[in-house]
Amino acid sequence: MINTIIFDLGGVLIDWNPYHLYRKVFNNDDEIRDFLASVCTPDWNEEQDAGRSLKNGTDILVAKHPDHEDNIRLFYNRWEEMLGGAIDETVTIFKQLKDSGKYKIYALTNWSEETFVLTKARYEFLSWFDGIVVSGTEKIRKPYPEFYKILLDRYHVNPEEALFIDDSARNVEGAENLGISSIHFTSAAELKNELISRGIL
């Protein structure tokens, strides 16, 4: 029986996407795609999510790609422009779960500690969680099992009684490897249907 819901944030409850910023800079999406695949890559960004400072991450990348310095520095200098807003349909589901009074609800997010401060001030619904575990604060991220275990241990969560929701198949697999039932998020509509079919919503 599920008594705990664990949400990812980016891509599930918050529309975070570098394209929102870089569409103001590059001529087309192909140029953005190339830049994010070869310069400001997901692997590079994940190091900041895992605790490396934004300054160190930026300096390392500028040294490696000096010809892209201006656009590299934009990544964190104008990082808030990557936030497209709340994903309202998922926030509505979150509120329904919260209002039911049946569940403890937590967030487990890969997010830089420095940028999460900005994010937390922007979205009121982040105060609804019973607890939030941020990778940048803990210096470890999904899908490493130790990161999930921080939440399980800190909030005394039985993995067999928890449900994890994340838009990354890799992160879902990491949770399932620890015995946590999971939903791979693709849309709010699909999530709602899945929660109803499981008798949770």
Rank of each mutant, 00 (worst) to 15 (best):
D167P: 08
I165V: 03
S197C: 13
F185K: 13
K192N: 15
Y123G: 00
E173R: 03
E173C: 05
H184K: 15
L152E: 08
S135C: 12
A169Y: 01
I132Y: 06
I165M: 04
L195K: 12
T186P: 01
Y144C: 13
P159G: 12
A188T: 10
P159S: 09
K139A: 13
E190I: 11
F147G: 06
A188G: 15
G174Q: 06
V157M: 04
A121D: 12
F125C: 07
S181E: 13
N158V: 07
K149Q: 14
E173T: 11
H184E: 15
V134H: 03
S182T: 08
F125K: 02
L178M: 10
R198E: 04
S168L: 05
P143S: 15
A121E: 08
R154Y: 08
L191Y: 03
L126C: 03
V172R: 11
K192C: 11
K120Q: 04
E124W: 01
I150Q: 05
F185I: 13
A162V: 08
A189S: 10
E194S: 14
N158H: 09
I180N: 05
L152N: 05
A188F: 10
I150R: 12
L152W: 01
P145T: 04
S197I: 03
W128I: 13
D166L: 10
S197N: 13
Y155N: 12
L191R: 06
E190N: 14
L151F: 08
H184M: 13
V133F: 09
S181M: 09
N171E: 14
D153T: 12
N177W: 02
V172F: 01
